[in-house]
Write a protein that binds this DNA or RNA. Structure first.
Length: 773
RNA sequence: UGCCCCGUGGUGUAACUGGCAACACGUCUGACUCUGGAUCAGAAGAGUCCAGGUUCGAGCCCUGGCGGGGCAACCA
């Protein structure tokens, strides 16, 4: 079974399920603020939140994070619900509103005040800002920071009671005005706003802020995994602080961040989307060029395609920009399998079949799907003397690789006869107005009885029977993959693609589509996927939106040819993150940052023990490590090995342990190194022993004896292992002998694993090399 | 400039506890075809930002650089 590749979040959830951290529960939430429309970036989050719940038999809540009365509205609540449902997700009964928690949040706040962990600040907005300091300078404490609990309580209650005007007071957490993390500099928790809330009405005049609301809402709803985007990374400390302050014990909700989606040639920030709509640069929120769910829907994209796309792009912690091609692939892949084919001529060119009877009409059978799509259905297409074909499908003077119609050439009319161009009619200005052809009545099957081959097939409609239609061709909204890549003084709107919408009003479509309801999707053969517009299209006024074009290798050839004539495109080559390294200048001596004491110690370690400057500095810089090192070298005189163990393994341990200290002494480290030096254990084993030592503080010698970890250095013990492995992997052995020497690692690694890490790796390596040579 | 996060083919993601750098999109061949679509077969393309170090062995561990992003709303 090919297991689906897991992203780091799914791996984490799986781990939590395994360890029973939340007793097997998985509860996620999708928490939009009802102040705008959802876009494809939200779709990624929705697929994650709902997807992970689904996969783990959990639930996902839809929670509106509606704590800002000034920007929120029911209309957004409704559109968000519609979009989530349309995407195919179901929140069941789990529809929540943060505004419904106002009373409970207020109680939490009161408790915080009572615990002296929050206070009412009466400074002006400007003073609060000023007092926060900057990223490089600590903030200053508010003069009101030390108000008594009783006074704070009184003030906060009166804030709620409406005794003050907007901005007169705020409730702030009492944390640390000097915190490196700006969010921890006594963040504002509540503010006064005499504004009507779309849901809570006038019940409140104080409103909680995000950092206070979100984490406690998660607690109220018993969320287990609170997933959000990377820009909330720094907020996590505050999230945890509030939970601690509210005395919420684990298992409790935990926040995990992932990278938001960036898509090529479009923008996905609420602010910018608002801007293009409000400046009238697009035709509203559901303009098919918009990356909004509403826009994509109107464009004809299916929810399945969006979900597939979200699966394809994965989830990670790195900012990235996804190719538009990936979305287009997902759309085509889905539509190919499900939509009927019809013929529509976008830019008509009249064709007269000279030898076809004037008033004859043949109803030709045309299947709705090609052979390779397992769907049934067909329709009749009327064939007559006068037809339209695509202007692009005729060239008077065609290049080599042009397979379509040209003077003297024969092509197949899709689902109909072979026709040959015999004449080209032009008007006074030289514009081609009409093509004259003859047809071969023997070729109704689409093939010629005499076996002659035609390379090209073109689509067509009957001039008399076809229906007029408007077709809108949509393309990427921006000219540049990164719309923000602009010259000084310009903004992203200067990168707008002027041709992102091309309206064709002269198009002709086959009559079979006449009665299909708006929103019907088709593939217009050889063109692309289209949908009849849900708002504009009607029986008498057919209008279609292009969802996405077909893959077009002909277009690629044309582009390539013209590029060949002009300058060659630059290919390959790294531009983005080229790491240029300046030569290192710094030495221990000129290390300005270090205190004199540390510098002296560094110099002593380097001099006395012959350590590298880097190593010496690493040791000297941390008192715990320095002491440990001195203890160890006093017992065992191998400073270099000891130093590398301490700098490498011990320091890592120290970081992971988060200030808990080390359960072992320098003497124990020395003992461990001694075991390595005298060959008692392999280094592989030593790491294992070290792990146990730092877990429980046992003496390495005891660990080795108890677990029987002595190194295997006898070739006779190792040989059978090597032989067995080589016998079991004849193909790999052959590849190795053929020169794929990278496989050495595989063989050595396997033997090491087989021996429980006890084999002497050098010996193993030698033996494997000898055995395979 | 302080703190935090992150650097793997052109793009997005994988790589178990250090052990064959994998998958998808895109690109390029070829086959097939009544859609220059789809499908099928195949290929090219990274030695993992750089420099050191530890190790038999490093994308993964350590040190230092470089590069990108986030944070100074009474927004979320």
């Amino acid at each position: 079974m090919a297991k689906r590749q897991q992203d780091f979040i799914r791996a984490m959830v799986a781990e939590d399920m395994k360890t029973g951290k939340y007793g097997g529960r998985v509860v996620t939430r999708f928490p939009p603020e009802p102040n705008g429309y959802l876009h494809i970036g939200h779709a990624k989050a929705i697929c994650l939140d709902f997807g992970i719940a689904q996969e783990n038999a959990g639930v996902c809540h839809l929670r509106f994070d509606d704590t800002n009365p000034e920007s929120e509205d029911v209309k957004f609540v409704e559109s968000i619900k519609e979009d989530v449902r349309w995407l195919g997700f179901d929140w069941g009964e789990k529809l929540f509103f943060a505004s419904d928690y106002f009373e409970r949040l207020y109680d939490f706040a009161i408790a915080l005040v009572e615990a002296d962990k929050a206070y009412v600040d009466s400074q002006s907005l400007q003073d609060i800002r000023r007092g926060r300091g900057t990223v490089t300078e600590a903030g200053t404490e508010s003069p009101h920071r030390n108000r008594s609990v009783a006074e704070n309580l009184d003030l906060f209650r009166r804030m709620r009671a409406g005794e003050f005007k907007d901005g007169e007071h705020v409730l702030r957490a009492k944390i640390d005005m000097a915190a490196k993390n700006m969010l921890m500099r006594d963040p504002v928790l509540y503010r006064i706003r005499h504004a009507r809330h779309y849901r809570a009405g006038d019940a409140w005049c104080i409103y909680p802020l995000y950092d206070f609301t979100h984490c406690l809402s998660d607690v109220i709803e018993q969320i287990t995994h609170s997933l959000c985007t990377l820009e909330f990374k720094d907020n996590r400390a505050l999230y945890d602080w509030v939970l601690n302050a509210a005395a919420i014990e684990p298992p409790r909700p935990e926040q995990t961040e992932f990278a938001r989606l960036n898509l090529d040639y479009t923008v996905l920030s609420k602010r910018k989307l608002v801007q293009v709509v409000e400046q009238g640069l697009v035709d509203g929120w559901d303009d098919p060029r918009m990356p909004t769910i509403a826009g994509l829907r109107r464009r004809g994209v299916t929810p399945e395609a969006i979900r597939t796309f979200c699966d394809m792009i994965g989830v990670a912690r790195v900012d990235s920009r996804v190719d538009m091609e990936k979305l287009e692939y997902a759309i085509r892949d889905d539509l190919n399998k499900r939509v009927p084919r019809v013929m529509c001529v976008l830019r008509p060119l009249k064709v007269v079949i000279l030898n076809y009877p004037e008033d004859q009409v043949e109803e030709l059978d045309a299947p709705h799907y090609p052979r390779d799509v397992p769907q049934e259905g067909s329709r009749k297409v009327p064939f007559t003397r006068e037809l339209y074909i695509e202007r692009d499908d005729f060239m008077e003077d065609p290049p080599e690789k042009f397979f379509r119609l040209a003077p003297g050439r024969e092509v197949r009319l899709r689902h109909a006869y072979l026709v040959k161009c015999v004449d080209v009619i032009k008007d006074d200005s030289g514009e081609i107005t009409e093509i004259h052809c003859t047809y071969d009545p023997e070729t109704k099957s689409g093939t010629a009885p005499d076996g002659r081959k035609v390379k090209g097939t073109v689509h067509w409609v009957s001039a008399a029977h076809s229906l007029p239609a408007e077709v809108r061709l949509y393309d990427r909204l921006f000219l540049k993959a990164d719309p923000d890549d602009v010259a000084e003084g310009e903004d992203f709107t200067s990168n707008l693609n002027p041709d992102s919408k091309v309206v064709l009003t002269e198009s002709r479509i086959e009559p079979s589509v006449a009665d299909a309801p708006p929103g019907s999707r088709y593939q217009f053969e050889r063109q692309g996927y289209f949908v009849s517009d849900v708002v504009d299209s009607s029986r008498d006024n057919l209008m279609f939106n292009r969802t996405v074009g077909l893959r077009d290798t002909w277009a690629k050839i044309t582009v390539a040819d013209s590029a060949e004539k002009g300058e060659r495109r630059e290919r390959g080559g790294r531009t983005a993150r080229e790491g240029v390294t300046k030569p290192r200048q710094r030495t221990v001596a000129d290390d300005r940052g270090a205190s004199p004491k540390v510098a002296a110690l560094t110099a002593r370690f380097a001099g006395e023990f012959g350590l590298s400057d880097e190593q010496a500095k690493a040791l000297a810089g941390d008192p715990t490590l320095a002491t440990l090192f001195e203890e160890a070298v006093a017992v065992h005189d191998h400073p270099k090995t000891i130093a590398s163990w301490i700098v490498g393994e011990v320091s890592r341990r120290l970081k992971e342990g988060e200030g808990k200290g080390l359960p072992f002494t320098g003497a124990q480290v020395a003992a461990l190194v001694t075991l390595i030096d005298d060959g008692t254990i392999s280094r592989t084993t030593a790491k294992d022993v070290f792990a146990e030592m730092s877990e429980r503080g046992d003496h390495p010698v005891q660990i080795v004896e108890r677990r029987g970890l002595r190194q295997l250095s006898d070739p006779k013990t190792i040989e059978p292992l090597v032989n067995k492995l080589v016998a079991e992997n004849p193909d790999k052995a052959a590849q190795y002998r053929a020169g794929r020497t990278g496989l050495l690692g595989f063989f050595v690694g396997q033997v090491m694993k087989e021996s429980g890490g006890r084999a002497n790796p050098e010996l193993v390596k030698e033996m494997v090399e000898a055995r395979l040579s």
